[in-house]
Amino acid sequence: MRRWCTNAREVVVGTGSGGGEGAATVVLAHGYGVSQASWDEVLPSIISKASKVLLFDWDFTAARADGEDEEKTRYTFGRFADDLIALMDEREVRGAVFVGHSMSAMVGCIASARRPDLFAHLLLLCASPRYINSEEEGYVGGFEEASIHAMLGAMESDFQGWVKGFVPNAAGGTAMEERIERSFLAMDPAVALGVARMIFLGDQREALDAVCTPCTIIQARHDFAAPPVVAEYMQRRMMVAGTDVALEIVDSVGHFPQLVASVPVSDILDGVLLPLRDEGGHDTVNAQILPAEDVEVDGGAIDVMM
Score class of each variant (00 low, 15 high):
N133G: 06
V285S: 15
T6Y: 01
G19W: 03
L54P: 13
A225Q: 09
A150E: 12
E248D: 10
P116H: 12
G202W: 07
V11S: 07
W162P: 02
I218G: 12
F60A: 01
V97A: 10
D188P: 05
V99R: 03
G281K: 13
P168G: 00
D298E: 12
M106C: 10
H101V: 00
E145T: 10
S48F: 03
G165W: 01
T216E: 01
Y233G: 10
P168V: 01
P275I: 11
S45R: 13
V26F: 13
A210K: 14
S252Q: 07
G202A: 03
K49D: 04
V250P: 00
V107T: 13
Q204F: 11
L201Y: 05
M187R: 10
F256E: 01
I302Q: 01
C215F: 06
E144I: 00
G300Y: 08
H121K: 12
A246T: 15
F184A: 00
D251L: 11
L125P: 08
F60K: 10
S51K: 11
E21M: 09
A170H: 02
V304I: 09
E136M: 05
Y139W: 11
G161W: 03
D298L: 14
G172H: 01
Q36I: 02
G172C: 04
I47E: 14
G299K: 02
L55C: 11
Q204H: 07
M103E: 03
N7F: 03
F200K: 08
V250K: 04
D283S: 14
A175N: 05
E70D: 11
R74S: 06
D117S: 12
G22A: 08
F143D: 11
A65K: 09
W162M: 07
V140Q: 13
A65G: 09
D66C: 12
F224T: 09
A86T: 09
P257R: 12
Y75W: 13
V163H: 05
G299L: 08
A231D: 02
Y32M: 09
E206M: 12
E279Y: 14
D278V: 00
F77I: 14
E136F: 12
V99L: 05
R114T: 08
G16V: 05
D158H: 07
W58M: 11
L125W: 09
V11L: 13
L84A: 12
R64N: 13
G138A: 05
H101D: 01
A105Q: 11
R130S: 13
P228D: 02
R197N: 06
A146N: 10
E181G: 02
T174R: 01
L274E: 14
G173H: 05
